[in-house]
Amino acid sequence: MIEIAIPLMDALSHVLILILVALGLMIIFGLMGVINMAHGELFMIGAYVMVMAQQWGIGYVGGLILAPIIVGFLGWVIERGLICHIYHRPIDTILATWGLSIALKQAVVLTFGPEAQSAPLPFDMRVGIGVFEYPLYRLMVMGASILLICMCFWVFKKTDFGLAARAVIARPQTSEILGLNTAKINRTSFVAGAALAGIAGALIAPTISVDPQMGLGYLVPGFLSLLVGGVGALSGVIVGGAAVGGSGSLLTNWISPVASQIVVFLMALVIIRMRPNGLIGGRKK
């Protein structure tokens, strides 16, 4: 029981963070067709905000509030300064955000040094669930992630903004003709996607070592989750995240981490190739 339960819980917490990252990517890619290669760096900066907040004495809660604000603002600057000039050249957004990711990474190295940092856990307790014990903080991260994911769904499915955003995803030109301010919706969504990456980074920061190179380790699995699940439907991200993150995390228990990563990547490539619309994506219109 314990041998299965703990890896399952670990896998679940990994999956939830991956879904948060992939959701941010999805909002930006689904809405604007922009591939944000700097998403991993936004995530990394969120984690750094948490580390710094604790060093400055603002504390954990302060970091958690500050991270989405700072990274969201950064997202706004990126959208205004870079992305809005190249909306009509989707392939170039890959290159431009790649340049951005290198610059951001190096800016962090210059400011905080290349070495790994760590943020202390806000509370170091373990709670018993049935027959095994699990760190309380990880449970809290899982709860917070689920809350955030639900919030995203609520915003997209139930609010006016969500309706407008879905309209822009489905028919950008028609929405514009009907009087929707697509530029503004895009900008808001980009900021939202960035803020989501920021808060995900802040949440996970106390459980991992935070270093300037950490972004890539989340960007590529995040993208694979997005493509495996299927672009377009929010629920695709959950399926994709569960498939990529869950299998990766579970396989590490039985085979080496390297082998498991290779297996997961291969699996993801085959799925993307065989089902270009994703596991739950519908037929191509």
């Binding site: 190249i86 431009a96 610059a103 210059l110």
Partner: peptide, 15 residues
């Protein structure tokens, strides 16, 4: 600063 510069130049040149 070299990498920072290269990243920035790359961004500007793409745009």
């Amino acid at each position: 600063f070299w990498l920072l510069a290269i990243g920035a130049i790359f961004m500007v040149s793409v745009v």
